Simulated scan of single mutants.
Amino acid sequence: MPIYNDGYTYCHEHLYIDLSEQKRDIDCKLDQYTLICEEMNNLVSRGVFNIVEVTNRYMGRNPHFIECLMRDSGINILLSTGYYIEGFFPSDLYEKSAEDIRDEMIKEIEIGIDGSAIKASLIGEIGSSENVFSDTEKKVFKAAAMAQYETGTPISTHLSFSTMGKEQIAYLKQCGADLSRVTIGHCDLRNDLDQMLWIIDQGCYVQFDTIGKNSYFPDEKRIDMLEALANRDLLSQVMLSMDITRRSHLKKNGGPGFLYLIDEFLPKLLERGFSQQQIDTMLRHNPYTLFN
């Protein structure tokens, strides 16, 4: 599924995800179709035409739910293949080889996901735990590098609280991945400009994809880091998103809602002196380049 270049793209979202069993919290089952569809309609009306949906195997991925959202809202949604992090792996994953996992990924990229008409457009979100990169997580990364080699598919990763970015990239490089087709998620959860500069220097994209999650890290500091990257003329390797994962994140449930990035965050960027061209680079041109 290609990206539509005439609109904005959120690079890292969840439109149907169910981690309620692992987290023992029903709030972690994001499945309220009417509310989500309404928010997608609102996004389309404001020029957001694409969502990169990074819910993968064993995270409650639901391609039929996504098919209905695309039909009813008109938004374009890219789906993912892969496995998440320790604590969210199925038990049989530990017995599979990297080659087995690679073949699963390629099947979902080339044939389709769970009997739906939708093929996976990216490998993600695959991740490492906080301050740890386990052997099984590395096995998934090795499989991703092999699947990328066979298909050219981009890879989207998960950093737990912005840790282990260098380790992820070093291992992907060791496995032969094309780093220009890799985007590193959750780089905006701590003030680590040096890590971001290093990641960009390796040729990868960095994601500021937890915008609005001020209880984790304030948006004002996110803007400070974006400004530092802008001053170095590095926004051509930056993308934006919100990583909405819970019912309580939706607007009608008291959360910021998907429009927060457009209605609240972008005006703050403009006030800080960012140009519309810089915003278009992060929300339009960079996702189009990576995901097509």
Rank of each mutant, 00 (worst) to 15 (best):
I3P: 00
N5S: 14
D6R: 13
Y8C: 14
E13H: 07
Y16K: 12
D18C: 07
L19R: 10
S20Q: 08
S20I: 10
D27Q: 02
K29T: 11
L30P: 00
L30F: 07
Q32Y: 12
T34A: 12
I36E: 00
E38Y: 11
E38A: 14
N41G: 15
N41K: 15
L43D: 02
R46M: 12
F49W: 10
I51W: 01
V52T: 03
T55G: 01
T55C: 02
G60M: 07
R61Q: 05
H64M: 14
C68D: 13
R71K: 15
S73E: 02
I75Q: 02
I75Y: 04
S80V: 08
S80I: 04
Y83W: 08
I85S: 04
F88L: 10
F89Q: 02
P90A: 09
S91N: 12
D92F: 12
D92R: 13
L93V: 05
E95M: 13
A98K: 05
A98C: 03
E99V: 15
D100R: 01
M105F: 10
I109C: 05
E110G: 11
E110Y: 10
G112D: 01
I113H: 04
I113E: 00
A117C: 14
I118S: 05
I118G: 06
L122V: 04
I126D: 00
S128A: 15
N131H: 09
F133S: 01
S134V: 06
K139S: 11
A144E: 00
E150C: 13
T153Y: 07
T157H: 02
T157N: 01
F161Y: 14
G165R: 04
I169C: 06
L172V: 03
C175E: 06
L179I: 08
V182A: 08
I184W: 02
G185D: 00
H186F: 09
H186V: 09
D188E: 00
R190K: 11
D192S: 03
W198Q: 10
V206C: 09
Q207S: 10
F208W: 06
I211R: 02
I211F: 00
I211C: 03
K213G: 07
N214G: 10
S215E: 12
F217I: 09
F217C: 09
D219W: 05
E220M: 09
R232C: 11
D233M: 09
D233C: 10
L234T: 08
L235S: 03
S236W: 11
Q237T: 11
M239Q: 04
I244H: 06
H249L: 09
L250D: 00
K251Y: 15
P256N: 15
G257V: 07
F258N: 05
L261V: 10
D263N: 10
E264P: 04
P267D: 12
R272H: 08
Q277E: 14
Q278D: 05
I279M: 05
I279E: 02
M282N: 04
L283W: 07
L290V: 02
L290T: 01
